[in-house]
Design a protein around this nucleic acid. Structure first.
Lengths: 126, 126
DNA sequence: ATGTGCTGGTTACGATCAGGAACCGAAAGA
DNA sequence: TCTTTCGGTTCCTGATCGTAACCAGCACAT
């Protein structure tokens, strides 16, 4: 989340490296991908997201949603009722990321045990 | 990179949320994905990686490789010559992640402009 | 009238982490 | 002897994460 701008113009052709890095800096943090995954099933309001993404704080949810909105992955809709209602949904750009986040989710669940075992083995070796 | 352990046993069934979060915390940072992408083409030695992943510091390369090794995604081979030679290559587990990192790389390159534009529009609105 | 709850945030602050720069030993080459 | 290469490590600073507290606005109950 530290890279404030996308790579400079001179890196225009094919240094995938810098592009991937800059985009990952935004989209690659743990909350962003989780939120994209949750919103894949349809729009959700703020507190709904907060309840379904366990472990996220209000602050991080706000910040992450704001960044996703800034990058055009998520759209924010305010309905000025009482109490106010704020809905978030994926934009087309956000939807285009869906297949990747889903693939990642499947990979994570499938290989979870392997990673945990590798980690235990590594730590035992030290 | 802050979550030190994988999710506790009680979260065993299907709270994909915690699993994805814990795994992303390790694998989802910008350097890890870039390294997996680089190693996808074959094994590389330390300084080779440092030169080809522009912008990475020696320290972050060391740390990230260590974590990837710990999680069983990367194998480290030391050849005790002078100067020492250390090669890194993907394990089978690491290779299983390849298609995802490649898909992400393609997505990043393809949608780079859209993100940059969305960001400019958002900032202009404030 | 007064308290309590829900909404979607914001602020303050301490812990944690990323990242840069400098340093390291050993050996080869000039 | 001085420099370079190799793969690290150590120190330090500034950014970031995350927790807890606070906020306004309104409904409903006491």
């Amino acid at each position: 989340m530290d890279v404030s701008t996308l790579p400079p113009p001179e890196a225009h052709e094919s240094d995938t490296c810098a592009v991937v890095r800059a985009i990952l800096a935004r989209v690659g943090d743990k909350w962003s991908i989780l939120i994209v995954r949750m919103l894949g099933d349809g729009s959700m309001r703020f507190s709904e997201l907060r309840r379904s993404i366990e472990g996220i704080s209000q602050r991080m949810l706000t910040l992450t949603l704001r960044n996703l909105e800034r990058d055009g992955l998520v759209a924010r809709t305010v309905t000025p009722t009482t109490p106010p209602r704020v809905d978030y949904e994926l934009t087309d750009l956000g939807h285009s990321l869906q297949s990747i986040t889903e693939a990642f989710g499947r990979w994570a669940v499938t290989h979870r045990d392997q990673i945990e075992n590798a980690r235990l083995r590594f730590d035992a070796r030290q």
